[in-house]
Design a protein around this nucleic acid. Structure first.
Lengths: 260, 260
DNA sequence: TTTTTTAATTAACAAATTGTTAATTATTAT
DNA sequence: ATAATAATTAACAATTTGTTAATTAAAAAA
């Protein structure tokens, strides 16, 4: 029997099929507040949300209108949800070539009043400079950035509160267990800039200690000194620049061999 | 506008919707070969696969027949894929109350010749004792366990080669970065039993060193000594038993504070 | 009964790393 | 010239690791 035969055979079965497949994106950025010249920045991790418009482009009332929501939309039949996330991020914010990672599926029956709709959730890392050029599209009345604390006081659409909670947990974990922090930093960075990024998600004393972290960064196998490159953007004294080593293999340090 | 209105409005849109939503499960087990009395076991991580039958229960030719595949099936509209995974695992192997975790989505257009079918992949951890009582159902002609090496020589259905590759990477990571190893062990275990589980996915010398690991296990905050409990199942000399501490909070040890 | 064998455990100790506080450096601002 | 300050290094005790060897307790063999 050919696959076509099998397909026809499958079609006669009376399974109900999903009413839609959406791709949602938790867009993270780090807002770097420069308190003064020659000072390391103070960073805050923020999530971009859109306020769903009252009406859609055809002047009809929108579902879950006027609630805050993750950007996203329906996946087309010629693309993956990952590709859809990239496309929608471009439509929504005008940015491309963004770090994207799939992190969860939301498929609880009844989660979307429009029917059986499966949401595939991703997170994105966008620099605040890139986001500054964002533009709202038809469906998005308003765009804003919220800190972790602020998000939980909002009126959120669908099950986006749960998705956002998971997104924060995943980005926190990834920032500490992978080298994804590089996506929040320029190609070359100082120890205090990397430290600031990590301190947005942890208060580990081994990371917050300046002397300790400045000593440790030099022995990390996935970071290298950029010889002869210094900057004065974080202090009066010219400061050493570092970069992440290009490597595909990810580091796994077992919890069984760590110090406690 | 009510949600019902919005729903009607949505329905008139002409998006194509998926033709199916499936839940697949990578069932892992550790086969413990007892080489002799009073010896620690030698363990191998194995994946359970089913050989797709030539015909289905209605005597029709099966799609991707006679290839090896992950167990799984269509998600129903009144359940999540996670729940479907549990249900299918019960139908397929007769085991319930199994550790399950969602790890990936496979949605590339054309991945399934039957149409636009989205696969939600999970891994399960089942003891080999539980699997021993497995039973094949109508769709599964044959069931077998394969080591990581063996799997890659098989003729695998759909895109299951890719899913399995990811499943092995995820279970390896989880075994080393979480306490999920407990699911492969009895409630109380010796240091060498835990060590054997970990050595199925790593050759880290800090774990393979007996003296080192036996010393280290006593200082891990998520493992505790079971006072006064000893066993002789791994050696002539009565050996201390340990257990995982009950805790929900997961341990995150940054790669930035590890030793290299 | 004595000896051998073996996994678990402890001991021992040098080497490496960390935690911590203080000192030094290089530059800007006053 | 002096004060201020982030980065960096120094200093050193405390902790942890890597490593090898010794010890323990029970079973098996002689």
């Amino acid at each position: 029997m050919s696959n076509d035969d099998a397909m026809r055979q499958y079609n006669i079965q009376n399974y109900r099929t999903p009413d839609g497949y959406t791709s949602d994106i938790a867009v993270f950025t780090i807002v770097s507040e420069k308190t003064a010249e020659y000072k390391p920045p103070s960073m805050t991790l923020k999530l971009m949300l859109i306020k769903r418009a009252k009406h859609n482009s055809e002047k009809q009332f929108n579902i879950e209108a006027e609630k805050w929501a993750l950007p996203g939309g329906f996946v087309q039949d010629d693309e993956t949800a990952f590709e859809a996330a990239g496309r929608e991020l471009l439509e929504e914010t005008g940015v491309s070539n963004i770090h994207l990672k799939q992190f969860g599926i939301y498929d609880k029956p009844g989660r979307d009043p429009r029917g059986w709709i499966i949401s595939n959730a991703h997170y994105a890392i966008v620099s605040s400079q890139q986001l500054a050029q964002r533009r709202a599209d038809d469906d998005a009345a308003e765009v804003a950035l919220f800190s972790m604390d602020e998000v939980y006081n909002l009126n959120l659409a669908f099950d986006h509160r749960e998705i956002i909670k998971d997104a924060f947990a995943v980005i926190k974990q990834d920032l500490l267990l992978t080298t994804v922090a590089r996506k929040f930093l320029p190609e070359q960075f100082t120890y205090s800039e990397l430290q600031s990024v990590l301190l947005t998600v942890t208060d580990d004393s081994a990371i917050s200690s300046d002397a300790g972290f400045a000593r440790k960064i030099k022995s990390l196998p996935f970071i290298e000194v950029v010889e002869g490159q210094k900057t004065q953007r974080t202090s009066k004294i010219p400061t050493q620049l570092y970069r992440f080593v290009h490597t595909d293999a990810d580091i796994i340090k077992p919890i069984y061999t760590a110090r406690y």
